[in-house]
Design a protein around this nucleic acid. Structure first.
Lengths: 334, 334
DNA sequence: TTGTAGGCGTTATCAC
DNA sequence: GTGATAACGCCTACAA
């Protein structure tokens, strides 16, 4: 490995001078000397050692990205947005999968700190007040929260506006003339970014109120959609549309509907949320809401870099608008 | 930030001694002194600076993972396998998206080198003889190739055995009694890991030969499947099954089939390859071949770490077997 | 315009 | 057992 020292010797100058041209502090270096040094660097295939540089500058140009599971289809787009943006600004990103386990989160935060990353983007199901996240605020480590819990302390974070997304969807369904609209949500504990509240607001704007008999709890999985729809049907509820809190739930609900001889969207319209890959391929193609994943990664990274560079954030919390994706699973109510 | 120096001072010992207990070289440190140092480290919340350590040990415990696009559904599982394994052995991984562009690949290799990663896992569509990959072999940087081109020089690499996967599939289709079997492959240039060869071998084992009239070229996309199937049908070819080189192709082929009034699998059986998410959700559920993605990441990382630690590889090239996933898109030929 | 010297936080090599 | 001290490769006052 060739070092700055080798270059200096070969060019017959001091280390300082070489360092100057490496860092483009070209003021204070003669044209000839610079030329020569550049030439020698080329010949020797010199590459600066960023580790050594980091030791003195306290900057590694590396970011940490902590998320539950990159294999979960929700995250790759986010990760891509993060990496692209980081790359533009000259940063690299270390990927960490936590499976939402507090111990792994804590471990990664520590390692990342020891490796002196310049900042961390953090997606966790844990609330920010919980211990291992307090680590972050206690350290002087810049960080940005991603999705998940809206924060009470106005920590910097980027969120997908579930309220707005579901509001758009519900309004669309209502515009299509549906009045008996069922809703299959997430499990009780999880607030799910206010999706349910968006649903209620839309009803409200149409002078309606949510009817308890048409509201069921799901689990964000296929099974939840199936079970909820089974209950609805077994109780003999009447409805012309079902709004589901996510796509998997919608797929499950649809399967039961078809089994029971209900045509979708002929007899019952169905909607999802997330726009996972299958949404565009199933029969009928699912009308759903697309999360602004890539953009979330982009925006979060932009914020983080601002933070790292000591610039002020105009806004600590940024909510991004999801997008309504209209396909074929909703038809006009007759 | 508290350093080893602070700890030494607070514990009234030399930094050497502190360093000894940090690195668990407990031989040569008195029990009492160790206790005291441990206590002080705790109190001061000391965390070793891995940058500084790396500067002297020449090891960063960081790996580079270079791939085209983490948002491409093929890679998240691989990345997860890589990260999990790396984590087990105490490494972190830097994620790099190249979009298969040679310039980006070269750039990342350089940055990774400058950041002194201990090794690189590399997935590229470029052939290993091309310039920027030669960088890797020229450097004394350990690396493992992932999927893509089988290598002529027996560089270390992990591959999915496309031959075997397609052989399994074709054999299954033949076992189901089909004799007029069409094949929609990839674009001509790309060898596609010998999938086509696997297909031919299976026919051969059944005393049959591939018939040119039933072979069409695709592009691994929906459009390719549609076009190829349209050609086949327009030419009036007779077949009871179509084997597609990947799932998207199969989905495209199926759409045309249905449009033209052919039932799947009633009239024609269809198979895919890759087992992407939609395969399990479409109607009929697609019989396909699952790539050993997670395992590939796992194995590649294991190899890389061996390389890094200077241990010998029993095998430079490892081929992993894909798995046949039988669903509902193939029925017995009558 | 250029060079000298000190320091970043560790580990490694010797002494004692 | 323990402790100086010299690296590691680079940056940055401060001098010249």
């Amino acid at each position: 490995m060739t070092t700055i020292k080798d270059v200096a010797k070969a060019a017959n100058v001091s280390i300082t001078t070489v360092s100057r041209v490496i860092n483009h502090k070209s003021e204070g270096v003669g044209d000839e000397t610079r030329e020569k040094i550049l030439r020698v660097m080329e010949e020797l295939k010199y590459q600066p050692n960023r580790i050594a540089r980091g030791l003195v500058t306290k900057r590694t140009n590396t970011l940490g990205l902590i998320l539950p599971d990159i294999a979960n289809p929700f995250f790759p787009e986010i990760a891509r947005g993060v990496e692209d943006t980081a790359n533009i600004y000259g940063y690299n990103v270390i990927l960490c999968n936590t499976d939402d386990r507090a111990d792994k989160e804590e471990l990664y935060i520590n390692v990342l700190k020891e490796k002196c990353v310049d900042g961390i983007i953090f997606n966790s199901s844990a609330s920010p007040v919980s211990g291992h996240i307090k680590q972050l605020t206690d350290y002087d480590m810049p960080f940005v929260l991603l999705d998940r819990y809206m924060d009470i302390d106005h920590l910097p974070g980027v969120y997908s506006d579930g309220f707005d997304g579901m509001y758009q969807m519900a309004r669309y369904v209502l515009q299509m003339g549906h009045r008996d609209v069922a809703y299959i949500g997430g499990p009780k504990g999880r607030s799910a970014c206010n999706r349910y509240e968006g649903f209620k607001q839309a009803l409200d704007d149409y002078g309606m109120t949510a009817q308890k008999r048409l509201i069921e709890e799901g689990n964000y999985k296929l099974s939840g959609g199936k079970e909820a729809m089974t209950k609805l049907l077994d109780r003999g509820e009447k409805f012309t549309a079902v709004i589901c809190a996510n796509d998997l739930t919608a797929v499950g609900a649809m399967e039961i509907l078809k089994q029971r001889g209900c045509a979708v969207p002929g007899d019952v319209s169905v909607t999802g949320f997330d726009d996972i890959q299958i949404a565009g391929f199933m029969e009928p193609k699912l009308t759903t809401v697309a999360q602004p994943c890539y953009e979330m990664g982009e925006v979060a990274t932009g914020m983080l870099i601002k933070l790292i560079e000591g610039r002020e954030l105009e806004q600590a919390e940024i909510k991004l608008k999801p997008q309504l994706v209209i396909r074929n699973s909703v038809k006009k109510a007759t």
